[in-house]
């Protein structure tokens, strides 16, 4: 309820379904992709991209040893180079959270964990929430949940909404990133709607993909999601973070994402607090580009560690 000029108005909000024009959104994404980022701007962008990476390993074969290696890389991507920042987070499966937490202690690098029956989301709510709570207790700073695409595609949006809201609750102090798995929603209209739904349910970040479904993150899908974040900000003054994940492999791609955030949302989002890149091999390409800026020539991948 609100009062306008002495008249009481109800809190009714019309439905949030808004269309996206596929041709135009792809044209805009392509146009932003032609920005030419040179010299100091490129250097700054590459460093910023490093600091925004959620360095990820999500394999059945992951072990404590693998995760410790990854954490070392996340904290000091190029040992001896204090000008290169640590990554934003390390992203692992729940059983490896404790290992990552210990390895990253005191570094400022966050521990992110996927939960809620990642990647399919096919599980019942009680078990999902239990997994979330245990993962936060084990030390996760951030939870990357997946939405229930079964419910979403059946049109049971209330179930999707309630599950996200319950997961926000279960996260307690941890931040929640909500993965829409845009490759399974397929149309931009659905991506837009799912983004709005996730934000309304309390998501701190919205995220494109698990990385297990193709296509994963794309520039146009990211643009649609950023535009929903922008609209939410205009309406409420509240910021929501964005994380494209999967398929971002090169420094050139990373800079295109940064340009898109910069020109869609602006300065306030140009920080790891509000924008992350879910990636693994991207880091080495960024480091190679940074070394190229320093040395004037590309060095061999053999000078860069795995992971």
């Amino acid at each position: 309820m609100s009062v306008h000029n002495g008249v009481v108005r109800s809190a009714y909000h019309p439905p949030a379904w808004k269309a996206v024009d596929a041709v135009a959104v792809e044209a805009r994404a392509a146009a932003l992709g032609t920005r030419s980022i040179k010299k100091a701007a490129k250097l700054q962008g590459l460093l910023l991209a490093v600091s925004m990476i959620d360095l990820t390993t999500l394999e059945g074969a992951d072990t404590p040893g693998k995760v410790r290696d990854l954490c070392a890389k996340a904290m000091r991507p190029l040992p001896g180079r204090s000008d290169i920042p640590s990554t934003g987070a390390v992203c692992v499966y729940p059983p490896l959270v404790a290992v990552a937490k210990e390895a990253l202690a005191g570094s400022g690098v966050k521990v992110a964990a996927v939960a809620t029956y990642f990647p399919s989301g096919q599980g019942d709510l009680a078990m999902k929430l239990d997994e979330v709570r245990r993962t936060v207790e084990a030390g996760a700073d951030e939870i990357d949940m997946v939405i229930d695409r079964r419910a979403f595609l059946m049109g049971d949006y209330a179930k999707v909404f309630d599950e996200i809201a319950a997961t926000v609750e279960a996260c307690g102090p941890a931040h929640l990133k909500v993965i829409l798995e845009t490759g399974e929603l397929q149309t931009y209209d659905k991506v837009r709607f799912a983004s709005q739904l996730a934000i309304d349910a309390g998501a701190h970040f919205i995220k494109t993909s698990t990385g297990k479904v193709q296509p994963a993150a794309t520039l146009p899908v990211t643009l649609v999601m950023l535009e929903v974040i922008r609209e939410h900000y205009f309406k409420t003054g509240k910021m929501v973070g964005m994380k494209p994940a999967g398929g971002i492999r090169t420094a050139k791609d990373a800079l295109k994402y940064l340009v898109m955030v910069n020109e869609t949302l602006g300065d306030a989002w140009m920080s790891p607090d509000w924008f992350r890149l879910g990636a693994s091999v991207l880091l080495n390409d960024l480091l190679m580009q940074l070394e190229k800026e320093r040395l004037g020539a590309y060095d061999s991948l053999r000078y860069h560690t795995l992971g």
Binding site: R35, S36, I37, K38, K39, A40, A41, K42, Q44, G45, L47, L48, V50, S51, D83, P85, S86, G88, G108, L258, N262, D267, A268, M270, S271, P272, D273
Partner: peptide
Amino acid sequence: PKTTAAAAPGWKYEPA
């Protein structure tokens, strides 16, 4: 906020 030099706000494109 993390305090890294890279996170400084105001990413300006150089002339291209």
